[in-house]
Simulated scan of single mutants.
Amino acid sequence: MAGDPYAALGLTRSATDADIKKAYRKIAKTDHPDLNPDAAATERFKAASSAYDLLKDPEQRRRFDAGEIDEQGQERPQRRTYREHAEAAGNPYARSYGFDGDPDLSDVFSDLFGGRAGAGFRQGGFQQGTGRDFHMRGQDYRFSLEVDFMTAAKGGKTRITLPDGGGLEVTIPKGVRDGQTIRLKGKGGAGMGQGGPGDAYLTVSVADHPDFRREGDDIFLILPIGIDEAVLGGKIAAPTIDGPVNLTIPKGASSGQKLRLRGRGINGGDQQVELKIVMPPTVDEDLSRFMEEWRRSHGYDPRRGMTS
């Protein structure tokens, strides 16, 4: 990623951690290669992913803001004056100012590269092959992945497009929750030298279902029943995430009454069924006449006892 990571997310340096996460999710939803095949969108998504990977970590963000690391998370070389170089140990032209023991330049490179480049440095100069001794872990990739309700509930497989254009099949674990992050070890960017590859992190967004709603591991369902089923009761087919099952409706059931199907939720959870009495599409003459006669002999006030 080149340039300002804040600009890549459409933010300024005063942005909060929540602002950074929100901006990244917004870009992912519009410019992810799986959602937008436009080349410019892919580049925006790559830049945003790199920016988020840097700024999400408070310490990395602090160091970037302080100028200690660049936008790629690499150490920035510290400026040294001519005198400091001249006085470094091992310099044949060094001058003495009345004291010895100036720090060896290898310490500088140890500071710059975390000790990883020190093996390629020798007092008085560089030894051949320094580049081969530099090791760095690969970049982590971060994606926003939307899955349908049933895939999240029962598990499944899907494919994502990596920043380099390659594809990766992902196994969605059974019962994954909205907002949960899945780690794919070693599926990030390639490392340098002996540095291993980075990881890929998938933040899951679970789409709504037209009938089911989830709370924890329980599934909630509003089940319509007819007036005859409410009055007479009986067994009816109720949908679950594993297919329809028989549910016993008690005689005289009311809207809002709740029944439980044990073990029919997610990972051993239950399914809660709320009954809802639904009138027929048309109230015909037979039904009207029956209800008029019934009301004359059996009428009751369901609102009795309510305060006015």
Rank of each mutant, 00 (worst) to 15 (best):
284 D>L: 02
120 G>D: 03
104 D>M: 10
4 D>T: 12
189 G>L: 03
86 A>Y: 11
112 L>E: 00
129 G>W: 00
266 I>W: 05
20 I>S: 01
208 D>S: 15
213 R>D: 11
291 M>N: 13
79 R>M: 14
119 A>I: 05
196 G>W: 02
97 Y>G: 11
144 S>R: 15
193 G>V: 03
210 P>K: 11
91 N>F: 00
167 G>V: 10
169 E>Y: 07
305 G>Y: 03
235 K>R: 13
278 V>S: 09
201 Y>S: 01
249 I>E: 04
145 L>E: 08
66 A>V: 09
253 A>P: 09
281 P>K: 14
192 M>I: 08
48 A>C: 07
196 G>N: 10
122 R>F: 02
305 G>W: 05
184 L>E: 09
91 N>V: 02
244 P>V: 05
13 R>N: 11
228 D>R: 13
202 L>E: 06
232 L>C: 04
306 M>S: 11
253 A>H: 06
56 K>H: 09
119 A>F: 00
109 F>I: 00
134 F>G: 00
59 E>Q: 14
162 L>I: 10
44 R>V: 07
283 V>R: 10
213 R>M: 13
148 D>T: 05
300 Y>V: 14
224 P>H: 02
216 G>I: 06
261 L>S: 04
41 A>L: 08
19 D>P: 00
102 D>R: 15
238 A>S: 12
157 K>C: 06
300 Y>Q: 13
16 T>Q: 02
219 I>W: 01
273 V>R: 04
233 G>A: 02
196 G>Q: 11
174 K>N: 11
109 F>G: 03
163 P>W: 08
133 D>Q: 09
77 P>Q: 10
198 G>C: 04
21 K>I: 10
304 R>M: 13
190 A>G: 10
104 D>W: 08
13 R>H: 10
30 T>N: 03
24 Y>E: 06
53 D>V: 14
120 G>C: 00
270 D>P: 02
303 R>P: 05
60 Q>N: 15
208 D>F: 02
164 D>A: 01
82 Y>G: 13
270 D>W: 02
308 S>P: 00
95 R>C: 07
30 T>A: 12
127 Q>T: 07
179 G>A: 11
